[in-house]
Structures are given as structure tokens and as C-alpha cells.
């Protein structure tokens, strides 16, 4: 590529600040969720006259696991849908969309695969077999896989947490397959999905008219509202 080269020497923390900051914040917030969830769960146990849990016991409980995984699955679903959806779906004027004439998987030349791969292209991009096809969809596939695993984890932890609650109420436990058809499972899933879809729709349309100076998620402040696929 012509143009300016990325600075090659940089400090580790600065070079990876985006991942590190969000990864660190994730751990802090997860710890906060654990503390709040522990207190709430123990309040419920106290009302029912049951033994309260230590924080360590709560971290190993199905109640904590289902609360964590129900949010994880929706986040991975959001990114999976967004990555695959933006191959074909467009939003005029949005930096989240590609240019309007580029809908679809694009040509090999535009994607720099096969004979069009360059010296610095990832190795599998330069192949012409299943490796290129797999690598060409690896980001979306990884998100899809993480979504499926997280949703499966939610369903299993959810069955255990739901049954523990049912036993406290002198109700018989249900099977995993029955839980998949339960209101609890779908309430937990759909309440997360709707919020993720709202956030994506809001980002796609608000970024047409609003700007965030210096953010690659926004167009340049002076870019017109109609320019599409331009990142600042």
C-alpha cells in the first residue's frame, strides 16, 4: 500500500491500549456483577430460610454462570450478525456501511486473495482452496462459534439455576429440552437480543448525522451526511 506506514516501534501498552482497556474494564465490571449478584442471591436464600453462599461458592454457582453467559451470547450474536449482515446490507451515509456499490463479498482483486494476494497478506489469503474460503469468513465464523458455545452454556447453566429455584418452591425439576422451551430461557435470550439489535440500528443511523472527532467509528467531522463507508 502506498501512503503513510504504521509506526513499527511502539510501547506495548500504547499499541494495545484498546484491547487492554476494554479487557481490564471487563474484569472489573465482571467482579462488580459477581458482588452484586452474590448479595442479591443471598437475599433470596435468606427469605427462603436456606444456607447463604460465600462469594467463592456463588462464583461456582449456576446462577452466576447463567447471568454471565446470557450476556456473552448476545454480544457475540450481535457481532456475528453485524459482520455477516454488513457484507450485503447498506446504510447510506453511515461509516458503519461500505460504499453502496460494494454490496456482496466483492472481487478477489478487491479482497486481495488468490493471485491478488500481496507479500504481506496472511498466508491462507494467497491460497485457492478451502483455506482461502475458510479464512475469508474466519472472523464471522469465530463470532458465530462463540455465540453458539455461549448460548449452549447459558442453556445448561440456566437449566440448573431454574431447577434449583423450582426445588426451593417444591416444584419438580425439568429436563434440558423442556427448559429450552421455557419462558425463562427465552426471556433471558430475547431481552438481551433486542438491546443488541437496538444498539446496532442506532449506531448505523446516528453515525450518518453525528460525529465523534478522532474516532474510526465516526466519519470525519466535516464529512457530508451522504458520504458512505468513510471512517474518520
Amino acid at each position: 500500500m502506498s501512503g503513510r506506514r504504521e509506526p513499527r516501534e511502539g510501547r506495548f501498552w500504547k499499541d494495545n491500549s484498546l484491547t487492554l482497556a476494554f479487557g481490564g474494564a471487563f474484569l472489573v465490571v465482571l467482579a462488580g456483577q459477581a458482588l452484586a449478584g452474590h448479595a442479591g442471591f443471598n437475599e433470596d436464600l435468606a427469605v427462603d430460610g436456606m444456607q447463604q453462599l460465600t462469594i467463592g461458592e456463588y462464583l461456582m454457582s449456576s446462577d452466576f454462570a447463567v447471568d454471565v453467559t446470557e450476556n456473552w451470547q448476545s454480544e457475540f450474536l450481535q457481532f456475528f450478525l453485524y459482520i455477516f449482515g454488513t457484507v450485503w446490507l447498506l446504510q447510506r451515509g453511515s461509516p458503519e456501511s461500505k460504499e453502496l456499490h460494494k454490496a456482496g463479498p466483492e472481487s478477489d482483486q478487491e479482497q486481495r486473495v488468490g493471485d491478488h494476494a500481496r507479500a504481506d497478506s496472511p498466508r491462507w489469503a494467497g491460497t485457492k482452496d478451502w483455506r482461502q474460503r475458510l479464512y475469508s469468513r474466519s472472523l464471522g465464523t469465530a463470532m458465530a462459534l462463540l455465540f453458539v458455545l455461549s448460548w449452549l452454556a447459558q442453556s445448561i447453566a440456566g437449566t440448573a439455576a431454574y431447577n434449583e429455584q423450582r426445588l426451593r418452591e417444591l416444584l419438580p425439576p425439568v429436563s434440558w429440552s423442556s427448559y429450552l422451551a421455557s419462558a425463562d430461557f427465552w426471556d433471558r435470550s430475547l431481552q438481551n437480543w433486542q438491546s443488541e439489535l437496538l444498539a446496532v440500528a442506532a449506531m448505523a443511523i446516528l453515525s450518518v448525522y453525528l460525529r465523534q472527532r478522532g474516532s474510526p467509528e465516526s466519519k470525519p467531522v466535516g464529512a457530508s451526511h451522504t458520504s458512505t463507508g468513510v471512517e474518520g
Binding site: M60, S61, S62, D63, F64, A65, V68, T69, W72, L146, L149, S150, L152, A153, I156, A157, T159, A160
Partner: peptide, 10 residues
Amino acid sequence: VVATLLCGCG
């Protein structure tokens, strides 16, 4: 995710 699957559920 796998660790979560294995812990606290069975």
C-alpha cells in the same frame, strides 16, 4: 465458555 459449562451446572 467451556469452563463455565463445566462449573456450577451439574
